[in-house]
């Protein structure tokens, strides 16, 4: 009988189209829709900070250069990963990430907790020529970042678009986005306290690329790298133990 029914279905284009849509919709609906309704999906972290405009600009450079192709930002709940990279990643940490940059490949190491592990100086040297500091590295050199001025005039538009997508940037943050980006990388400027007021006192205000006269793409990218894993303390308070990797580990 099943076959008989199918022979009927095969004679109707519209029927077949509808059947495909029906069959193909179920999986996505069951797996995706509840992620928006089940509260435990994303942990609560009241101390979760937003990216400052400079860090956001740095993140956009990370996106633009396709860094996700070789670096993950997702420490799995496996013991060896936790020992190598730090506490495993929580969903709340990428709550404001549009898009998420969890990645799928580690040609280079995971970067979820890279913030604060190395000095700004190291990052600048490494991005300028990775083989200067890591002789066997196969990462491309990004020396032009330090030669390229960062575009900051359109940052309010970026924050506005993100607010439309659900990130709670305030009017003051949007209004001051350009100046905040500039100030975060030039601590001597008279208004540089504004960025810390708006984004929290943990905000790292300093010259990232060692050149105080100009805000470059290098400043932005290093500012972003240095804040990775440091937007909330939640992962360090998480008590569930990571799992031992399955199989022989001796």
């Amino acid at each position: 009988m099943a076959e008989l029914f199918h022979r009927k279905l095969e004679r109707s284009t519209i029927g077949f189209v509808l059947a495909i849509v029906a069959a193909a919709s179920v999986g996505g609906l069951v797996e995706i829709a509840p992620l928006f309704t089940i509260d435990e999906t994303v942990e609560k972290a009241p101390d979760m900070r937003l990216y400052t405009p400079l860090e956001l600009a740095g993140r956009n450079i990370y996106v633009r250069e396709g860094c996700y192709a070789c670096h993950s930002q997702m420490i799995r709940t496996l013991q060896d990963e936790v020992e190598r990279y730090g506490p495993y990643s929580l969903a709340v940490e990428s709550k404001y990430d549009h898009p998420m940059l969890w990645g799928s490949k580690r040609t280079g190491p995971d970067l979820a907790r890279i913030g604060g592990k190395y000095s700004d100086f190291w990052h600048v040297a490494h991005l300028t020529n990775p083989r200067e500091v890591v002789p066997d590295s196969n990462m491309p050199a990004y020396s032009w970042l330090a030669r390229t001025a960062l575009r900051v005039d359109d940052l309010p538009l970026h924050l506005k678009a993100l607010r439309a997508a659900g990130v709670p940037y305030t009017d003051a943050m949007i209004e001051n986005a350009s100046i905040d980006a500039y100030d975060q990388a030039t601590p001597e400027s008279s208004t540089s306290s504004g960025v810390a007021d708006r984004y929290g006192k943990e905000t790292q205000v300093r010259v990232f690329d060692d050149v105080a006269t100009e805000v470059t793409e290098m400043d932005a990218l290093v500012a972003y790298l240095q804040v990775l894993g440091r937007l909330t303390d939640a992962p360090y308070k998480n008590t569930a133990a990571p799992q031992k990797p399955p199989g022989p580990v001796k």
């Binding site: 992620l35 549009h98 898009p99 998420m100 678009a161 997508a165 659900g166």
Partner: peptide, 27 residues
């Protein structure tokens, strides 16, 4: 599904974020 920064920007921000974005992306 994304919010473009403006008509004069190539850049847009996806409406999905974090864990939901990861699921939609790999779906």
């Amino acid at each position: 599904l994304a919010v473009p920064v403006s008509l004069g920007h190539a850049k847009s921000y996806t409406i999905w974020s974090g864990v939901q974005d990861a699921m939609v992306q790999w779906w």
